[in-house]
Each structure stands twice: as structure tokens, then as C-alpha cells.
């Protein structure tokens, strides 16, 4: 099993943190992981993105060309990564900030009003956590409790209140599509 993931949005949406949390989560579940942030020349159009690979085998390439899963947080990222997704792959997008609709028919497309849901929990900037919750549920790759552990490895200096709020956002995303699994 190898899952290649790209997360993309603009700076400040917790793109890099989301990638690192996924990598931590993979590691907690004894998988091989790589995380690679785009930087320099690849950073254009106000987007930041990162690649995460989670695998039961040692990871060959940390560079992801055709991801199994993309998490799209803003409009320019949709334009950039929709076509890259592997046929049969999964595209999660932040419907709260993206007006266009993905056109691909050969992949699973799931809209999530991530920012709206995050605001309802009291903090817009944890929209990325909502997305990670959905990711865990839809891929079945990582458990919710692992993600809760993993965010604590990323946010070592955060206070308990924030960590609990993050957990709630993860739960929110995880429970959006039924509580089975």
C-alpha cells in the first residue's frame, strides 16, 4: 500500500502543518512516510503545497507527480492539481472558498465547507483540521485517534484549549459522512 497525497492552498491555511501531521500520523501507525514542502520557484500564484507519501514499503520518490489524494484549500490550487489526480483517486476541496466545481468524472470529488464548519466551532483557521478528519474517514488510511496524537506532535507549544478545539475539528470532519468505520 502506498498513498501519495498533495495538500495545497495559500500561506496561512496550515498547509505545511497538515502535511506534517499526516506524516506524523503515518509514522505513529508504523508506516513509512515522507513529507516535502514546495518552496522557491515552485511557489507561485499565492499557493503553497506539500507532498506526503504514506506507505507500507520504504518510500521511493518523495516527489509526487500523480497523487492518489489531493486536499484543495483554495481556488488556484484546484486549477493546478485537479488534473494531476490519479484516475480513481480522491479530491477533497474546501467549498467554502472555492466557487468553481471540479470537472473530473473519473475520480471521487468531495466538497467540504471547511471554513464554515471551522467558524461554527469558533475558529476559521482550523479548517485544515476539518479536512484532515474527512481525509481519515474517506481514505481509511489513518484512525481519528492517531490524527489527534499526531497534531499534538506538530503543535508542541499549543495550549490545551487549542488542542481540544483541533480535536473537535478533526471529529467534525470525520463524522460528516456518517459514523460508521
Amino acid at each position: 500500500m502506498t498513498k501519495e497525497i498533495i495538500i495545497s492552498g495559500f500561506g496561512g491555511q496550515g498547509i505545511v502543518s497538515s502535511g506534517i501531521i499526516l506524516a506524523h500520523a503515518g509514522l505513529i501507525e508504523d508506516k513509512h512516510v515522507t513529507f516535502f514542502p514546495s518552496y522557491g520557484a515552485e511557489m507561485r500564484g499565492g499557493t503553497a503545497n506539500c507532498s506526503v507519501v504514506i506507505s507500507s514499503e520504504p518510500v521511493a520518490s518523495p516527489i509526487v507527480a500523480s497523487p492518489d489524494v489531493v486536499i484543495i484549500m483554495n481556488e488556484p490550487s484546484l486549477a493546478r492539481f485537479e488534473l494531476a489526480v490519479k484516475p480513481g483517486g480522491l479530491l477533497l476541496y474546501n467549498q467554502a472558498l472555492i466557487k468553481s466545481k471540479p470537472k473530473r468524472k473519473d475520480i471521487t470529488v468531495i466538497p467540504i465547507k471547511a471554513n464554515v464548519l471551522a467558524e461554527e466551532l469558533g475558529q476559521g483557521r482550523i479548517a485544515n483540521m476539518v479536512m484532515l478528519g474527512v481525509f481519515a474517514k474517506k481514505t481509511g488510511l489513518l484512525s481519528l485517534s492517531t490524527l489527534k496524537n499526531a497534531q499534538r506532535k506538530r503543535y508542541k507549544k499549543a495550549n490545551d484549549e487549542q488542542l481540544v478545539l483541533n480535536d473537535k475539528a478533526l471529529e467534525k470532519g470525520y463524522s460528516l459522512f456518517g459514523n460508521s468505520k
Binding site: V33, F36, Y39, P62
Partner: peptide, 10 residues
Amino acid sequence: DGLLGQMMEA
């Protein structure tokens, strides 16, 4: 190179 330096792994 920069890729190896900026990449995170276990």
C-alpha cells in the same frame, strides 16, 4: 541537495 534537506522523514 535542497530536496533532501527540506524533506521530512523518519
